[in-house]
Design a protein around this nucleic acid. Sequence first.
DNA 1: ACAATAGTGTCTATGAGACAATATAAA
DNA 2: TTTATATTGTCTCATAGACACTATTGT
Lengths: 236, 236
Amino acid sequence: MPPSPPDYDAAAFPPFAVTVDLIALTVRDDALQALLVTRAEEPFAGELALPGGFVRPDEDLNAAAARELAEETGLHQVPGHLEQLGTYGAPDRDPRMRVVSVAYLAMAPALPDPEPGGDASSAAWVPVAKALESELAFDHRTLLTDGVARARAKLEYTSLAAAFCPPEFTISELRHVYEVVWGARIDPRNFHRKVTSTAGFLIETGRSVTDGPGRPAALYRSGPTAVLVPPLTREP
Amino acid sequence: MPPSPPDYDAAAFPPFAVTVDLIALTVRDDALQALLVTRAEEPFAGELALPGGFVRPDEDLNAAAARELAEETGLHQVPGHLEQLGTYGAPDRDPRMRVVSVAYLAMAPALPDPEPGGDASSAAWVPVAKALESELAFDHRTLLTDGVARARAKLEYTSLAAAFCPPEFTISELRHVYEVVWGARIDPRNFHRKVTSTAGFLIETGRSVTDGPGRPAALYRSGPTAVLVPPLTREP
DNA sequence: ACAATAGTGTCTATGAGACAATATAAA
DNA sequence: TTTATATTGTCTCATAGACACTATTGT
């Protein structure tokens, strides 16, 4: 058994840099898309990367993630869902120094394109399939893969799909989220029955909208139920 | 929108300390128990805390967690399962300085008590129910609560319950893990049918053991299936 | 024999998936 | 009308839970 020091001297702690990185996902143009930036500085200058940045000295981790998301999208208040995904801290993941990155997963409805020329000039929404074909800076391919896997899994047993929808949405829009994220067709009739029979998942607004031909669709808001029992299954 | 600096100067990054903390769980004496230490130093000297310590300058996060687990249990190689739980970094969570802690969840079979007098002299297994009644240092009550919730949830849809069992175990032992972690009785007959009919969950060893009266129980090893479909449900 | 635990078989209600049928709109 | 989408209804098969029953041990 290796004899280990009883504890480090608190004043001599090894210094780390701590960053937050964002896997911000949305559904646009029938595709799952992620927010990516083009790095302006070394290392990996000119390459695609996940948005992120250093946590400030007196800033909570979640606050740092929310701040970065707002900065990169150009919106004050970003709708949708934000949760911690995991922390990545391999000693050599950043060539400059020891950096530990706390990754956050954001799920948002379709947002306007980030303003070119603004602070987030280099940010853009990119289909996940295309992003995973590209080179990504640091270990960001791993982060993106993990984030997408988490999102896909969570659609099964939580009501998070609604985070990809605007505040009021039709059941077709919700189904479309599932179909795009899972990459699978879903029977509209069974889906309708399932989501409407899960208590607390959806709240009727009483209104309806008509888009193109066909019977108008009822509008719903997201309900209080976060965990779906039974879950929606992915394998037809 | 607050104008934010385009990026921090990499050389002027805000320094953080990074630690790993362990939620090490086991099933002993019909109770879910956690490994706790009594702190020797300020802050919170004399109080109960989760085991943990600083990540070393060239150490991976998972390696740091595995090292701490080995140190605190007194075992070179700790059986069971180790996974990242989440990262806790509120600015004031450590009164000394800015500390970001990566929490790891460990699930192990019943282990010998840590050697008093050794390096882990202050470590001991404590029933979770009792631990949550006590004061815990830092935000460790939150970490412990989150870890237990994760473990309970994961028993439903993964084969992780076997991590609480020795390498070879009976179906009764496995069921006992579920009953203790969930705090609910499970019908032995339906449980038997369920776990044996989930392909890849259990592997027969061909041997059996007899403990007390009753028919001998077949011995199984854990199989390759990590995700249980369909899941075992918690609500009878 | 009796008690205790392991393991198998059976029944029933529920729910998922397939798909027919109806409702209501645009073209 | 034709077409497209929304919504409801029906049928069938699989399965979860309740529980009777058999198997095999210790006392």
